[in-house]
Design a protein around this nucleic acid. Structure first.
Lengths: 329, 329
DNA sequence: AGACCTTGTGAAACTAGTTACATTGTTGAT
DNA sequence: ATCAACAATGTAACTAGTTTCACAAGGTCT
């Protein structure tokens, strides 16, 4: 029979023994093969094949001090805006040879702190979070570990971590001013929960003192928007425009209005914030504020890669937003 | 001045020295504190705080042989069906103390093999892939590393890795038979690219020899569906029902039909496969085949967790699909 | 009072790699 | 012929934890 097949996994020493060379030579074959004679290299390669040797990632990173893993904490994967961001982030990190660990927080700061700890435990080299409201536990973890940390989706140059994101208040204000400019006097605002949700809060705060607003808080889901539409028609019949602080809500509102046979934009104008693909394709297409989530992902990846590779902490970066007028207004 | 602040990061030996105990004692304080006297425990804790000591993940996993990281390879994050799956997967893995590394493949087997190698390099304990078409490089990597691997979205008990997924052919057939049962004679099929895309291929193959079909291949995006609608009206005017092999296409088709002022379902019936939230909320709501992506995520997480914790390879598992009749048919 | 057991702690040997330094052998120049 | 230079390889000391085993101190039982 063959060698003891009970044995778990071959290591460098096993390969060295099998090939009749030292561990150093095997290590060289793996990392700097040009320093090894072709003949010994082949012997070693053969031993590697024969023993199904795969170098241990842990042992490698204990020496290099690198894990090549970046952790990202996002509220949810159910909103396309985060998927888009993460997709771009993963792709760009990949170009730097970095892998992305995703953790969802359900917008709960305690879960975030807990998952951040887990990311530290698995050896993440840097963390990426959404927004600027985090629990004290989270902050203390970051300060203890001195972990490179970037906050996204929110631009605030005075924040304790570098931010790469939008001016959320300005984005929603831009949308509101556009609607006001179109002559709307009674505007409803659909928004998601604001506790622990700084971006939503900032977007709402951008609307203060501007025109007559009726605001409706609901879950950021299509059904949530449907319920908000129902609430709107029960309480505020003379509203002529709806500003949704998320395109998910805008699409849900579109469906809700269509179901009530309300003509868009004639009887009701509709506007979102995010610019998801659905807003461009919908009929009627939905006006929105374009948030370049993919660009934010790519820039965040670059910032983080630079930080972990060259210890250069990134500068805060403001991502531009732009208004896209479509058929719904 | 304080201690040399140049020093990178405190390790166990530093803490032991500072606390005046042995490294073994510090290790015990971290892992089995009940074995350590309260007084020494406190001394050690104080030293840990003072030195900002954070145990090295790499050193830990070199001993335990565990990284607590699972790798998932998905085609894209841009399709909600994968986000939903990954969200459930991440949540359930979290319950087992496992973290999820996400890698996107863009449906390219070569990129998949390359990213799989990277996941191995960072020490992933298991891999999760979509579908059953993978490159030889990928298969050779799996066989060399003997890495636990689960294939999802596709049920095939004879496949070389355990599969946890749907019977895609049966799902689409179910939809088609439903449409035929409604009296439709000329049915168009919208589907995504079939090369490297076994699920789409399987769904298409499920339709063979059933009624008069006109098939349109396009990108699985809302715009792709819009283009397919245009192609449909140019080439096949007497079609009375569209079967979209993805709900993304169905929603895009809905918008495209609305734009052409085609009444749904009177002038054109519409049906999808996936059951994304948009299909339930759309107006009219879209009939579809419900694919429980979240359930698949949770089951996959359980299977993988069991595999890595107890070395028990999971049995293939068929996830049931069900037809949901809505307003669009 | 001596044997026995429990508890707390430390020394050193593990885990699996990388790498600085030492050694050997060959070639080329003086 | 001799010595320097260099290429190829080995030895052993690192990286940062965990864990086994040994040992000392204190308490209990006969």
């Amino acid at each position: 029979m063959a060698e003891k097949s009970i044995k778990k996994r071959a290591n460098l020493r096993d390969v060295a023994k099998a090939a009749g060379v030292s561990v150093a030579t095997v290590s060289r074959v793996l990392n700097t093969p040009e320093l090894v004679t072709v003949s010994t290299r082949e012997t070693v390669q053969a031993a590697i094949e024969a023993l199904h040797f795969v170098p241990s990632a842990a042992a490698r990173s204990i020496n290099s001090g690198r894990s090549h893993v970046i952790g990202a904490l996002v509220p949810t994967l159910d909103n396309a805006i985060f998927s888009k961001f993460l997709g771009a982030l993963e792709t760009k990190l990949g170009e730097y040879g970095l892998s992305l660990v995703v953790a969802t927080t359900d917008s709960d700061p305690d879960i975030e702190a807990q998952k951040a700890q887990r990311l530290v435990n698995i050896g993440a080299e840097a963390l990426i979070v959404s927004g600027i409201s985090h629990s004290p536990d989270f902050d203390s973890l970051i300060s203890r570990t001195r972990m490179p940390t970037v906050a996204t989706s929110f631009y605030d140059p005075s924040y304790r971590y570098p931010t790469i994101g939008y001016d959320n208040a300005a984005a929603s204000r831009k949308a509101l001013e556009f609607l006001i400019g179109k002559g709307h006097q009674h505007i409803a605002v659909f928004h998601g929960p604001t506790d622990h949700h700084d971006r939503m809060r900032a977007r709402l705060s951008g609307l203060h003192g501007q025109g007559v607003l009726h605001s409706f808080e609901t879950d950021i889901t299509l059904e949530g928007a449907g319920m908000a539409i129902n609430a709107l028609f029960e309480t505020s019949p003379h509203v002529t425009a709806i500003l949704c602080l998320s395109d998910v809500l805008a699409l849900g509102a579109l469906f809700g209005l269509q179901r009530r046979n309300v003509q868009i934009p004639h009887q009701m104008a509709l506007m979102g914030v995010d610019d998801l693909p659905s807003s461009a394709s919908a009929f009627p297409s939905i006006s929105t504020i374009h948030l370049p989530a993919a660009e934010m992902g790519a820039r965040t990846a670059e910032a983080v890669a630079n930080w972990v590779e060259h210890q250069s902490e990134p500068e805060p970066f403001l991502i531009d937003t732009s208004l896209i007028a479509r058929e719904s207004t």
